[in-house]
Structures are given as structure tokens and as C-alpha cells.
Design a protein around this nucleic acid. Structure first.
Lengths: 343, 343
DNA sequence: CTGAAAGCGCTAACAT
DNA sequence: ATGTTAGCGCTTTCAG
């Protein structure tokens, strides 16, 4: 039904409900907030009147008065990565259940933009913040100073005493690399992300650990740290393939970069997995549909979101609770891109 | 730098700046908002003091007083679709440039959730709203009634007098279908989205128009309208392939459904494009990487976002401007999945 | 050009 | 159990 409705019709305020119900604004407030100190019958009547009038509390006024809003801010670093979108779903699920709304802020891995959003969510009085920091040195003190609960997600901030939830990047990367070794690849390169991100460095370390466990030295020329984007993976893979002694497998530390690496391989007509094996990190809708289907380290993305939300809820309820650091396991999902080399 | 900072340190208010600068709060307000009625030298001094104190205006108080906030709400229907994430980038680009922040709300194509977010953004006093409505009958009167500017994006609302920006779905679908016919496919099926979405129905109509232009009747059994999800495309394609007389090509009206259709084809061991041709609608990071690389109708996603933002900005500046309906062209991007049938 | 004062809509402290 | 009052932090008349 498209109701035309007169534009500018005054929004109904609490005062209007109060007048109509023949009570004071305070009583309306109490009734609508289910305070126990109001007569049940009266409360019912007030709520009925409010509903009839289509009253919706002004959250801005409420936030100003309560000095705390009713939205959670989820600050993510790349909205184009399905990893974060899945995480967002998880967060939302819990938030809505708790009566909060979630707004997303996209920093694009950009420190300045992250800084800006931090100021915004503070100024907008978010009830809490879940953030995938754009750097392991992101300064969240502005939030902490004003008692806004923060949970870091996916990545940790070095030295910060905040609740956090991450996956076991080290173990996942190590398992992926060992899998490649076990499949018969021997000259394995690593394409990881920015060194300012804990995820990137931990995955690189897991890769190195697997090599060493197999008695190999880590060849620095075969380790690339670039951005976490498709283009970064494409360029890095290209450079590695153009080396005099190119690798025969890639461990690629992120889903977007893995797509880029696959493109570089395809453009060069290099058969995967026959000539070069590939394992990515983090699944994506397209990974199983690629040619060949991509082996990846799967992360519990949705769970990551719900866990972060759980930590935030807990912190909201008890500011002095002990800091909790959750680490979730990954799972290697073997597909075709790592079936082993063919002479 | 990780500053520890004493938790709970009082946030600095305008009054503090005023006291420190030896002026009234009103003057501080005027100075910080660049009102012309304040002595330039004084204004400079005030701004300096504000900066020194690390003063950040409380947006909640400002919104309450001004009766309008400084964030734009972007209400999208599926955060997991890269289409929307790219659009979001475009919106943000313009918004930040204009001094607004963007928050994303994800409705998941769910009418109830959309309803909720509409109430939330109203109550939070968003300065404006850009929305991809979950239905062609979405009721946005709650926003219009309170003079919150609205721009619809990607989809239109039937009968609504609001600024809107969409792509030419009809022409794009028609071109895609004609392309399949030209490549030699003859029994072309259409997998489209929910009939409550204008995008889905227009794409279906474009498909039908192309068939009729080629002298074909439209066989209703070959037209499926499902959801815009991977699973929907998978199921629909499977059903169509299991028909006694299966189609020899698919026009799939969305990127996620196209991925699902490709999966159904792969599972049945049906060669694409030799046995069955496929054209999708809307590009995605994975489309060119699939096996075979997917032919698609490309949409100017980023531009869609910036255009929507432009319309919103215009409306904010002039509430009585004439309603503008922008239609952007699509472009067929031919890859391998529609190379033509082989006997 | 600047200051004093009112008030946005709500909630919490205080009164009754 | 309910009403009255004050005030969250800002902007905007209205005076001067």
C-alpha cells in the first residue's frame, strides 16, 4: 500500500501519548521501558495508546539522555570481502535478538578512514563497537576512554586489553602448507597480506613453520606480503612465476588474493594442480566453482560474528568482567587445486 | 601508539572549549560551524582551543537540536552480494566528500527487517536514506512523512514519487537473450528473481521480448522466478535440466543465481558452452574465474552508488526539486559460457 | 559581533 | 505508583 501521507506531518512525541492517555510523560516512559514501578493495567493502556498513535521513541533524544545509544557499530575493513559480510550476518543475528541495531562502517583498510569512523561512532554514541582493525596498532583509546565497549574481530591489536575473537591463523596456515608438501609439491611460495595485520603475519609464520618441520629452509624470495586484494595476489603470483626458479605451489593467505593468483596462473596457461598447486585461506562463494575448484582453509565466519557479539553483550552487562580472547579453529577443505603435481 | 588513557575520562564538551577560550558556548558553536557572524580572529582562536582540547562535537546532541543527523543510511537487501558492496563504495565516496558518514543496514530481502530499519533510521534521525527496497511495494511513507529524503536504488517502488536510480534491466536482459540466440542456442530458459522486485520482472520481460523478436513463443515452463540466491539458481537450473525437453541455454537474471546454475550444470557433467549456454546478469569477482568464464550483463555498480548519492545530495539541498529518475545502461561482457553449441 | 536563555525529546532523581 | 522537575550537549532565537 502506497500511502501518500502529508509530508511534514509532525512526528508523535511522548508528550502526545501522555496527553492522550491522561498521564505524565514520565509514566509513558516507564511503561514503554517496562519499568516494574508502574501499574500493569495503566502500562497496558499506555502501550495501547502509543501503538494507536504509531509512536516510535526518538532514539536521538533517548541516547542523549541515557548517554548511550542502541546501535552497535561493526567496523570492517573491506566490505567487498565475503568474509566480512558473513561475519556481519552473525553479529546482526545476536544484536537484533538483544534489541540492538547494527550499522556497518567500511574502512577499506584505510587508517584515516578508520580513525574517522572511530570518532563518528563515539560522537554518535554507539552502545558498543566490534572492529576488525585496519592495523595491529590501531588506537582505540578514544573509545576506551569514554567507556564504549570494544571487541576486536579477526585481528588483534598488539598490547590492547580488549575482548577479541580470531581464528587460529597459525595452525590453519601450517596445515595448508603441510598439505601441499604432503601432496608432493616442494617449492612452495607464500603470498600473504600487509605486515601491519596480525592475520597476515601469523599466516606467514604458520607457512614457515610447516616448511621447517619438513626440513626446508624458508626462501625469502618466495615470501610476499602485499595487500589483501585480488590485484595484490595477481601481481605477486605473476612476479613469483616469472622468477628464474619459480615455485611449484602457492599458499595464498586470503580469498581475494587467491582469486588473483588463479588469474595469473590461467593467463600464463599454467595447469593447476598439475604444474602448480594452490591453497587459499578463507572460503568464498566462488572458490568451489573455480577451475579447478580451490582448496582452502575454511574459517567459521558466521560463528566469528556471533562470538564477537556474545563478547560485546557480556561486556555491556559487566564492564569489569575479565578480558576474554577467543580463538576459533579452522578447517582444511581439500578440493582440486592441490591434488598433487604431474610430471 | 597504544595510549592507555584513564577509562571514563570525561569527554570534552563545548562548554569546556568556551571556558578555555574565554567566550560563550554560542560563540564556540558559531566558530566551529563557520558561521560568518563571528570575528575571524576570534573564530581562529576558538578553533585552535577546540583542537588543542581534542574537542569532537557530540553528534547526538547536535542531531537532537538540529532535528537532522549527519549520517546517511544505506539500506541494502543482501550484504553478501558484491553488487551491493560495490554500490556502497560509490555512495560512501560522495558522502564522505560531503561531510556525511554512511552506515549500512542489511535487510536480507526481508520485509520485516526492512520495516525495522526504516523505523530505526527515522528514530536515529538519518539525514537521508538510500534504499534498495525489498519489495516494489515497500512503504516508505514513514520517511516521507517526516521529510527524510529518500532515494531508491537498483529497484523502484511502484507509484512512489521519489528520486531513483536503476539500470536498464529490460534492455540488458534482452541483449543477453539475443546474444544467446545469435550464438546458436534456441531453447533458452530464464531464471529470474522474486516477482516482487522490479529488477526481476523487468529482466524476465526483456528475455521474453528477445524471444518474441526472434519469432519464438515464450514457453512458460522455461521461465522460473525464484529468489536471488545461489541456492535458488541451483534448484531452478536443476529442475529445468531434468525436464523431458530441457533447455539448451540459460539466461540467469542475477550473479548469485548464475553461480548456482553453474553448479547444477557441473554436477550433471553437462558441458558449458558446448551443450548448454549460460549468460548471467551482473558481474562478480568470480565470474571471470569460473569454468568456463561466465558471460554476463555488466552493471555500472559503482556509478549506481555515486548517482544515488548525487540525487540524495541534490534533494537535501532542495526539497522541492523535481523528482529525478536515472536509468543507467548495462553492457554485455562476452566470455566463454556462451560461445555457442557444439553438436 | 557576542552573550544569555530557551528548548530539541527523552529519562532519572526527587517529590508526593 | 505517579507526577514534577531538571538536564543530557548542542544550536538558535533574541537582546544588547
Amino acid at each position: 500500500m502506497i500511502e501518500t501521507g502529508r509530508a511534514g506531518s509532525r512526528r508523535v512525541r511522548m508528550r502526545d501519548v501522555a496527553t492522550r492517555a491522561g498521564v505524565s510523560a514520565a509514566t509513558v516512559s516507564r511503561a514503554l521501558n517496562n519499568r516494574p514501578t508502574v501499574d500493569p493495567q495503566l502500562a497496558d493502556r499506555v502501550r495501547k495508546v502509543a501503538a494507536d498513535l504509531g509512536y516510535e521513541p526518538n532514539r536521538v533524544a533517548r541516547s542523549l539522555r541515557r548517554q548511550a545509544g542502541s546501535v552497535w557499530a561493526l567496523i570492517i575493513s573491506d566490505i567487498e570481502n565475503p568474509f566480512f559480510t558473513s561475519v556481519a550476518r552473525g553479529v546482526e543475528e545476536v544484536a537484533l535478538h538483544e534489541g540492538f541495531s547494527v550499522v556497518l562502517c567500511n574502512t577499506d583498510e584505510n587508517i584515516a578512514r578508520e580513525r574517522r569512523y572511530l570518532d563518528v561512532v563515539l560522537a554518535e554514541q554507539a552502545a558498543g563497537v566490534i572492529i576488525a582493525p585496519a592495523s595491529d596498532r590501531t588506537d582505540i583509546s578514544v573509545l576506551r576512554d569514554h567507556d564504549v565497549p570494544v571487541v576486536t574481530l579477526d585481528r588483534r591489536i598488539r598490547g590492547a586489553q580488549v575482548d577479541s575473537v580470531v581464528v587460529d591463523n597459525y595452525a590453519g596456515a601450517r596445515q595448508a602448507t603441510s598439505h601441499l608438501l604432503g601432496a608432493g609439491y616442494w617449492r612452495i611460495a607464500c603470498i600473504s597480506g600487509p605486515s601491519k595485520l596480525t592475520t597476515a603475519t601469523e599466516r606467514r609464520k604458520g607457512y614457515a613453520a610447516a616448511l621447517r618441520a619438513a626440513g626446508q629452509e624458508v626462501d625469502r624470495r618466495w615470501v610476499r606480503q602485499t595487500d589483501f586484494r585480488v590485484e595484490g595476489g595477481y601481481v605477486a603470483a605473476g612476479e613469483l612465476l616469472d622468477l628464474a626458479e619459480p615455485p611449484d605451489a602457492f599458499f595464498v593467505a586470503n580469498n581475494l588474493m587467491a582469486a588473483g593468483a588463479m588469474r595469473a596462473l590461467r593467463e600464463r596457461g599454467i595447469d593447476v594442480p598439475e604444474k602448480v598447486g594452490v591453497v587459499g585461506f578463507d572460503d568464498s562463494p566462488w572458490a568451489p566453482l573455480m577451475a579447478p575448484a580451490l582448496t582452502i582453509v575454511e574459517q567459521p565466519t558466521y560463528l566469528l560474528g556471533t562470538e564477537a557479539a556474545r563478547l560485546l553483550r557480556r561486556r555491556l552487562a559487566d564492564r569489569s568482567a575479565a578480558v576474554e580472547a577467543v580463538t576459533l579453529p579452522t578447517e582444511l577443505r581439500v578440493r582440486d587445486s592441490s591434488r598433487g603435481p604431474q610430471p
